[in-house]
Design a protein around this nucleic acid. Structure first.
Length: 407
RNA sequence: GGAGAGGUGGCCGAGUGGUUGAAGGCGCUGCUCUCGAAAAGCAGUAUGCGACGCAAGUUGUAUCGAGGGUUCGAAUCCCUCCCUCUCCGCCA
């Protein structure tokens, strides 16, 4: 949730964020609703204070009190109605946008850096073809059992992923991250608070409405919830690495980039997640980005770093980078990992705070970043380490974990 | 699945309808005492939202697991849900 004070004192700043993200929302409508609401709050508070009395009231007093009570009821009903409408709108207001964020949508994402050079100088096979050659995946069985975009992963792919997780976990422990296995389902409260159950938008999560639970789309969700209502000590950022499957509805994502493992309903992921002091969050975002790069380099994957444009940011994100791997099969860069600074947007919803240097409670900043996934990281490895004869080599850093230099 | 107990402030713990934001204790902070420390004494010690103030602060209101209800008035009574603990049963 956005800071109400910013909304009141700086509505044009918020409207600018809404506009640049390409959303249709009138901040003026929200602030005028807020003003009406504040008037009603005052009224109800005044009436309520009149209802307070010590000891037993006389009959005469009682009559007056009952009349006041009736008045109070009608005003507070009106307030309730307004508040529901207000919070509905408020929850649709996205975070502010960092300076230097490119305008426009996805097409305006700005390349900031390139690393590595593809060694595949022949007609590359895509990961689907390579999977068939090496017997890595079975989508037919997945479809039979659960539907399209579900799949089975077989020995060589499982072992390759195991090696990646082992390497990545070692890197993250060394970088000071606490490894966490997390609940794969969270309640609505947590899902909404992290911005993953947006009102008025198409839901992208598997939901068990009977139990009030949502299957996680990323470990980011339960990791944020881990500190709900906590007062944290964040002199240094608190870093977690969540290890979990991710469940995604992927409704309406037909079309491009749909082949094989690239966009599926379920995959495993190691996710970095940090709680940081506001004045340290930018630095922490850069650190997370550096770790993502370090992992790509260890896996010898050519990549580029892309700064995400305003229109391509999710509602909680203030600033975001993607790392895109080079696909020799498609001869283009494609999203591999991403990291964002959500500032206090999530922590305000879940009431996660720390004491600042003045001793005042203040919301912490939250940040997230992908370390590795069993889908796209595997695709990138297969495609980039293929040889002309279809052999797939294992990058040096991975060999001791995989136990061989070829798949 | 069956039976029972319970969820109160940073912590422990009183409190079953009327100045209870909440006794008492612990902890913490400040002051006094001291050469200093300990001990002792005194004072203070939650958070959200609103109003006033440059500020320290003052003030209204809300918050005793969550939500709803009864009442002029609820931590206290009623309903629903969540969680914790003990015993029995079942089971990976």
């Amino acid at each position: 949730m956005i800071d109400i004070k910013v909304l009141r004192e700086n509505p044009e700043l918020v409207q600018d964020s809404v506009d640049r993200r390409g959303l249709k929302l009138s901040i003026k409508d929200i602030t005028s609703l807020d003003q009406k609401r504040v008037v009603l709050i005052k009224q109800t508070e005044e009436l309520r204070s009149k209802l307070k009395i010590d000891g037993k009231p006389s009959d005469e007093q009682l009559q007056k009190l009952q009349a006041t009570k009736a008045e109070f009821e009608s005003v507070s009903q009106e307030l309730e109605r307004l508040s529901v409408e207000y919070s509905e709108l408020l929850s649709q207001v996205p975070n502010l946008i960092a300076d230097t964020t490119p305008d426009g949508g996805e097409e305006n994402n700005r390349e900031e850096k390139r690393w590595g050079q593809s060694t595949v100088d022949f007609d590359a096979k895509d990961h689907v073809e390579l999977s068939q050659m090496h017997d890595l995946l079975n989508f037919e069985a997945g479809a039979k059992v659960a539907g399209a975009k579900f799949y089975y992963m077989k020995t060589k792919a499982v072992l390759l992923w195991r090696a990646v997780t082992a390497l990545v976990q070692d890197i993250l422990v060394e970088e000071g991250f606490e490894l966490m296995s997390v609940p794969h389902m969270v309640n609505n409260n947590i899902a909404e608070g992290t911005g993953f159950l947006p009102k008025g938008e198409e839901n992208q999560n598997y939901v068990d409405s009977e139990q009030g639970l949502v299957m996680i789309a990323t470990a980011e969700i339960p990791l944020t919830g881990y500190h709900k209502d906590d007062e944290l000590k964040v002199d240094k950022p608190i870093n977690y690495a969540g290890i979990s499957p991710c469940y995604r509805l992927e409704a309406g994502t037909y079309g491009k980039f749909n082949k094989g493992l690239y966009r599926v309903h379920q995959f495993d992921k190691i996710e970095m997640y940090s709680f940081a002091r506001p004045d340290q969050s930018e630095e922490q975002l850069q650190k997370i980005l550096k770790i993502e790069e370090k992992i790509c380099q260890a896996l010898e994957l050519p990549y580029r770093v892309v700064r995400i444009a305003a229109g391509d940011l999710s509602a909680p994100a203030y600033k975001k980078y993607d790392i895109e791997y080079y696909s020799p099969a498609e001869k283009e860069y494609r999203e591999l990992t991403s990291c964002s600074n959500c500032t206090d947007y999530q922590s305000r919803n879940l009431n996660i705070r720390h004491r600042n240097s003045e001793g005042k409670l203040e919301f912490v900043h939250t940040l997230n970043g992908t370390a590795a996934t069993s889908s796209r990281t595997i695709i990138a490895l297969l495609e980039n380490h293929q040889k002309l004869n279809g052999e797939i080599t294992i990058p040096g850093a991975l060999q001791k974990y995989y136990g061989a230099d070829k798949l």
